[in-house]
Design a protein around this nucleic acid. Structure first.
Lengths: 241, 241
DNA sequence: TCGGAGCGATCTGTATACCGAATGTCCGGT
DNA sequence: ACCGGACATTCGGTATACAGATCGCTCCGA
């Protein structure tokens, strides 16, 4: 029975990351306990962890709330990526085993088709695995954790389809360039490719974010209350509630 | 009554950081509750947070344990500093207010006298404030948190007097150079100074670490089980227990 | 009719008790 | 001397109780 809180935590986290639990939605401990059928204590604990990871916000005597997506969070996270990942790529280039580099290369081949929603979700997942594996190859466990957390938080945005849409080939090309540099054990070049990869991602996403905001489509900033319309045809009863 | 867990958490964290609770020491929830007179629930919660920060380790059915100091953790943390702080200094240079830059400069003036233990502890504290303030000036809250956490974990080593000893002036000089560059709004130079500062710190500490290990003085590594040899004449009954 | 004070509902925060599970220890048998 | 099982300890999880805080509703007065 070792793991009741751990699976629960993972389930909730997955649902948040995949925007199954809409950002900005608020709920009580009991409610969440019913939803995942678990007692109040494990729910509390899971929520505490999620709060520390920035996925849930605790409103002092009113309950919990899925952290609303905000432009500022997105910017912060991307800025962190820009700082962390190029160095991580360089370190990984020097420290990874040949097998790991092969696996990285394999993951870098992933693309997705625009017409297929499922393919996109898979890509987001593989993209995470790629970045996480690179971080792991730094052989710096703490760094790996931090980079992983940053990416997890970014994935919520990805799952909304905001920053990646319609850039499948470009992304894969950048991934490949980086993976190849790593495989050639060229740390400097790997760093460079990683940096331009992140910079490009930032450019693309800022464009898409602008559009999204212009269309009033999703993301919100500032003082909480992020009603989330998300995709058309999605029920959004009691979203801000 | 909002804050019972928060102060408790802070107290425990402070005691761990200041090595008041010796690294490697193990204890039960009840024990800790008695020590800080608090209930089991707040203790649990505080320990969970400390675990996520890497200051406490949970041994599945045997209790808790102050994370033993390990060379690998030290190396990891310094490597992270080397990645984060130069960029943070550069960002802060561009984003800080004039007042903040003044305060940074003021903090950078801190030195310590070798003969005075209290002065050293103060220095460690001020050093933390300096680095934390710089991180805060990046205006990237998440980045600030991460850098703060890294530094907090490093402080345990500092409080053991390991990596700083007898480098007071050198440290202050490096701090000053960086702070001055920041005040001149020269981001590139600030980054450069920060980088050499961290690199120097790494060199110095690796020397001192070697010595410390040679003298069997403190730090432990590898697979958990840090029997605490520490100082000669120290009983080590039930150390791994 | 409108506005403000007060009351109650609800939920978190915290403490405590209890059961089950797992592990290390100790003791006794082979 | 070695091995195996019972016991104590301690954590993991749940239920429960209670205090405090917040919100919303009602009621009363202007």
């Amino acid at each position: 029975m070792e793991g009741v809180v751990e699976p629960l935590y993972r389930k909730i986290r997955r649902d948040i990351v995949e925007c199954e639990l809409t950002p900005g939605k608020s709920f009580s401990e009991a409610e969440l306990g019913r939803l995942y059928n678990a007692g109040r204590t494990p729910v509390r604990e899971a929520c505490r962890r999620l709060e520390r990871e920035g996925l849930i916000r605790i409103i002092p005597f009113r309950g919990y709330m899925v952290t609303p997506l905000s432009v500022s969070e997105f910017k912060d996270l991307e800025e962190m990526q820009l700082i962390f990942e190029p160095e991580a790529a360089a370190l990984a280039t020097e420290r990874a085993t040949d097998e790991e580099l092969e696996k990285i290369l394999r993951l870098a081949h992933y693309e997705y088709r625009l017409d297929d929603k499922q393919s996109y979700r898979e890509f987001v997942q593989k993209n995470y695995e790629l970045h996480s594996l690179i971080a792991q190859c730094t052989r710096n466990r703490r760094l790996h954790e931090v980079i992983g957390n940053v990416h997890v938080r970014l994935m919520r945005f990805f799952y909304l389809g905001i920053p990646l849409d319609s850039y499948g080939q470009a992304l894969a090309a950048e991934h490949l360039a980086m993976a190849n540099a790593m495989r050639a054990r060229n740390a400097g070049e790997a760093r460079q490719h990683a940096e331009t990869h992140i910079r490009n991602a930032m450019d693309r996403s800022s464009k898409l974010l602008m559009d999204a905001i212009r269309f009033g489509e999703a993301v919100f900033d500032t003082a909480s209350v992020a009603g989330t319309i998300a995709s058309p045809g999605r029920r959004s009863t009691k979203n801000t509630q």
